[in-house]
Design a protein around this nucleic acid. Sequence first.
DNA 1: GATTAGCACTCTCAATGGCAGAGTGCTAAT
DNA 2: ATTAGCACTCTGCCATTGAGAGTGCTAATC
Lengths: 345, 345
Amino acid sequence: METDMDSRKEQILQTVIHSYIFTGKPVGSHTVADSCGLRVSAATIRNEMATLEKLGLLTQPHTSAGRVPTDIAYRYYVDMLIGRTRPSPKDAEAIERLFEARTREIEGLLHEASLLLSTLTHTAALVFAPVTQADMVRHLDVVMLGEHRVMVIVITSRGQVGRMLADLGEPVSANTVERASRYLDESISGKALENIDSDSLVEGPGFGPAGRELVRIAVEAVRGYLSSIEERVFIGGTANIVKEMEHAGAEWVQTLLEAMDKQYFLLDLLKDLMCEKHLTVRIGEENRLRELQKCAFVGTSYPISPGLLGSLGVVGPTCMDYARTISMVEFMAENLGRRLLSPPD
Amino acid sequence: METDMDSRKEQILQTVIHSYIFTGKPVGSHTVADSCGLRVSAATIRNEMATLEKLGLLTQPHTSAGRVPTDIAYRYYVDMLIGRTRPSPKDAEAIERLFEARTREIEGLLHEASLLLSTLTHTAALVFAPVTQADMVRHLDVVMLGEHRVMVIVITSRGQVGRMLADLGEPVSANTVERASRYLDESISGKALENIDSDSLVEGPGFGPAGRELVRIAVEAVRGYLSSIEERVFIGGTANIVKEMEHAGAEWVQTLLEAMDKQYFLLDLLKDLMCEKHLTVRIGEENRLRELQKCAFVGTSYPISPGLLGSLGVVGPTCMDYARTISMVEFMAENLGRRLLSPPD
DNA sequence: GATTAGCACTCTCAATGGCAGAGTGCTAAT
DNA sequence: ATTAGCACTCTGCCATTGAGAGTGCTAATC
C-alpha cells in the first residue's frame, strides 16, 4: 500500500482546508491547482484528491461538487500542519486592553472576557471559574431584610462570596440579628465546613428561641453554600452559533442553543479541560456530547490560584479558522491567568 | 362612518387571533365560521373580515391567503379581549416550587427563575435585579492573593457584594494586608460613598509606603464599585427565539440575538419597566428598540426591598399566547417579590 | 512511470410552466 | 342583512429543462 501521505498531498490538503475555511464552498481541482503553488495540472490534483478521499480526509457532498475536508482532515491539519501562532497585534491589543485596569470587578471581567473572545473568533465563548470545594470561612454577615427574613453573606478564605436568603419561622428583632451576626462571625471565622457544629453554636450566649432559630438557619445556609459548588459559566456570543452554523440545519442549531442554556451541560465540558494541561481541540464526532458533534470545540485551562484551574473555550463550526482561534484562546487564557493568578510567594 | 367595532367583529377578531396563535397559519373565513360559535356563513365572515382589514386589524400575506392579525389587533386583543387570568395549577406549582426552599442563594435563584420562565412561556426570559446606587459600606475585607495582588471584597448595608481584583505596585506582606483589612473595615464600615475620604485614610496608623498604597488602592476599588452600578441581567431561553421566530427571517433573528448579548441593550428595556407600576405589553413597532420591532415584549416590575424595584420580562413572537404569558410573568413577579421583599417592619 | 489533455458523465441549481388547492371579492338571490 | 355561487388570484408542489461545475477515465506525452 503506497497510500501514505507525502508532502504534495499535505500541501493539497492544506489548500483545500484553507479555501474551504475562507469560502465555505466545496473546493474543486482547478481552484486548488491555481492556488496551491504546485506547478501541476488540475488532473494531477484530481488524482491526488481521489487518494485523499480514499484515505478518509476528503469527501464530496455530491458526485460532482468539489471536495470538503472531513473531521479527520481537520484533525490532521491541527496536529501536523499548523505551527504555534500568536494573535495579530491588533487582536492581542484588544485582549490586553481588557486587563489593563488596576482594579477590576471579577464577575464583570469574566463576562467581558467571554464577550470579547466570542467577537474576535466569531464563535460562542465559554469562560468558567470554578471554586475550591472545601474552604474556610473568613467572614460571615447576617443582614436583616425583614422581621421574618435575613440575608446570610459568607466570605471564604479564598475570597468567594455567597449570598443566601433565609426565611425565619419566628420574627426577630434588629438587635438579635446584629448580635447573632457578630456572634456567628466570631465563632465561625477561620473554620472549615466540617468543623462547624450547628448544635454547639445554638447553645451560644443567651439567645431567645427566635435567636436560636436564626443561628440554626444561618448555619444551615452557610453549610449549604460551602458544600454546594456554586459554579457559573459565562457565555458570550451565542448569536454567532446561529450565524456560523446555519448550514448545519435549523433544528440542530436549536438543540445546541438549548443545551447551552443548561449550565450542567457546559460544566462537564469545561471540567474535562482542567485535567489536561494543554490546549484541547475536539472536532466533530470527537466530542463526547452529541450536541457538539457537528461543531468544533477549542478550549484550555488557565490558573486561578496555586492548585486551582479555571477553563475557557469556544464552540464554532468545524470549518473554523483553527490557527486564529487557537492562538486567541491561548492568549486569552494566558492573560486571564496572569490577571487572576496569585504568584507563589 | 359606521365602521366601529361591534361585538360580532370582536368575536371574529378574537377567533382569528386564537387560531393564528395556535396554528401559526393565516386564517380563512371558513375556519372562522366553523369555530367562532356565530351561526353565520363564511361569506358573512368574509365581509366582516374585509372591514376589519380596512380598520387596520387584519392583513393578508398575499391576495389569496387567510388573514393574519396586525400589531394593532394584538394591542386591541390585549387591552379589551382578555381578562385577568391566573396560570394553570400545574404552571403555578412549577413556579412555586422554585421558591419553596428556606435558604436560597440569590444569584442562583434569579438565574433559575429566568430559565423556568422561558421554558414555561417558550420565550426568552429576562430577570433583572438592580442595586441601589449610593449605599453604605457594611463590611470590607482585603484578601491577599499574592505579593502584588489582593482582592477587595465589600458588602453594602443592603447586602450587595462586590469583589475587586487589585494590583499593587509594591509587594506587601501578609501581615500588612491583614492589618490594612481590619483598619479599613473599622474605618469605612457604616460610611456612605461620599463620606469616604481617601486622603485622610492613608494617613492612618503607621503604614509603610506599601501599606499606604494598599489602602489607597483598596479605597479606589471600593469607590469604583459603589459608584459603578454593577447590574446583571439573567437571560434564559435564547434558544426559544430561534425556534419561535424563524419565520421572521434568519438575519433578523441574528441581530436580535446579538443585541441580547449586549447587556446595556436590555438594561434600557428593563429600567423602563420600573417606572410603570403595571405590567407592560409592547407589541411589534410599539417597541422603541428596533431589534424588538418584530416581536412582543411582556414585562413587569417586582419589589426587591422598600423603595427598590427589579424587573423581569419575556421576549417572544408577536403571535404569542398573550393570556398565558401575561399570567405567567405576573405570577413569577409576585412570587419573586414575595421571596425577595423584606416586608416593612 | 508520472503527468496531462480531452471527453463523457453526473449532479446541482435556477428557471419555467402547469396544476391543484385555498381563499377571496363580487353579484344576485333570499 | 345574509348567503350561495362563481370567477379570479395567488401559493405551493411537481416535473422538465438547460447551463455550469466538477469528476473519473482513457489515451497521449514528457
